[in-house]
């Protein structure tokens, strides 16, 4: 009896490596072929882990803000000068915006324009970030119970951060603009020419499929075009900062590593997208 138990233990020990390695490879294959079970298990597991991450992230967040404070302390003088200058410019823009807003309102009334649907949004805390070599995603502590759905845009004050790709009941995963699988339809701000920004797991985005004849220049700002109905039009995405080997490079406005809270926009275009999605639904590979 004891002997057989020992030999069973020995067999398990002996075959544990091939057994678990096979299991790992099997999981990789399942997630590669986008088996629905994998994404639902993943969403549920993250749901369970989300509160734990939220707790262990607090000390890290404190360290993080401590480092930021020390950082700021050293350049407080220069920053003050920059802010004064920026404030002066913004006050000017505010006056212009007010004037345009009033003008716009008058024109809308004159033309009896149909009001655009206002965006509803949910604000959530960033609880996890994988800025690894392989994926660029972020976790937030709100999910389907808070009204979040797959495909919705995640934005900060600076602009678009990404969109929801994986959904649990109380957690969700954002695919960042910089991820290898991220493609977002944009428009050049000056000419409204359509294009696509694509991520490649680096900190920069590349501009693809620029319309023929569009005059791209360094410093050109890009906003979402609203094409495809996934993201609301007009959200700031990034600015063209380089040109190398025939490709325009774009620096995104949002630095996800610096964001503490994100807003998830519910941009519901009636009839265009299915409105109800189950928890565990996913819209992207793995």
């Amino acid at each position: 009896m004891l002997k057989s138990a020992l030999s069973l233990g020995y067999a398990v020990q002996r075959f544990a490596f091939p057994l678990f390695a096979g299991l790992a490879i099997g999981l990789m294959v399942l997630s590669r072929i986008e088996h629905p079970a994998v994404s639902s298990v993943r969403a549920q597991a993250v749901d369970v882990l989300a509160p734990v991450i939220a707790v262990v992230s607090r000390p890290m967040a404190a360290i993080d803000s401590g480092i930021a404070r020390i950082d700021h302390f050293f350049d407080v003088y220069e920053e003050n000068a920059v802010l004064r200058e920026e404030n002066r410019r913004l006050l000017h823009w505010q006056a212009t915006a007010r004037q345009l807003d009033a003008e716009n309102k008058d024109f809308r009334e004159l033309l009896s324009t149909v009001a655009e649907p206002r965006n509803a949004f949910v604000t959530a805390r960033m609880i996890g970030m994988s800025s690894g070599t392989f994926v660029r995603t972020a976790l937030i502590n709100a999910g389907s119970q808070d009204g979040i759905a797959v495909g919705q845009a995640a934005v900060t004050d600076d602009g678009v951060m990404g969109r929801i790709v994986e959904l649990g009941t109380r957690s969700a995963r954002i695919l960042l603009l910089t991820d290898l699988n991220s493609r977002v339809p944009v428009a050049l701000e000056s000419s409204r020419a359509p294009a696509l920004v694509a991520g490649d797991n680096s900190n920069m985005l590349s501009l693809m499929f620029v319309a023929d004849g569009a005059n791209v220049q360094i410093g050109e700002r890009l906003v979402t075009s609203g094409e495809g109905g996934m993201l609301p039009p007009g959200l700031p995405v990034g600015v063209v900062t380089g040109f190398e080997e025939g490709i325009w490079y774009v620096t995104p406005f949002v630095d996800p590593a610096r964001a503490e809270f994100v807003r998830v926009l519910d941009y519901a275009l009636p009839g265009l997208l299915p409105t109800t999605r189950e928890a565990g639904a996913t819209g992207q590979p793995w």
Partner: peptide, 15 residues
């Protein structure tokens, strides 16, 4: 699971 990496990659590396 947490980083959103392909499932099984880190598991295989740690094995």
């Amino acid at each position: 699971l947490v980083t959103g990496a392909p499932l099984g990659v880190s598991a295989l590396v740690l094995l």
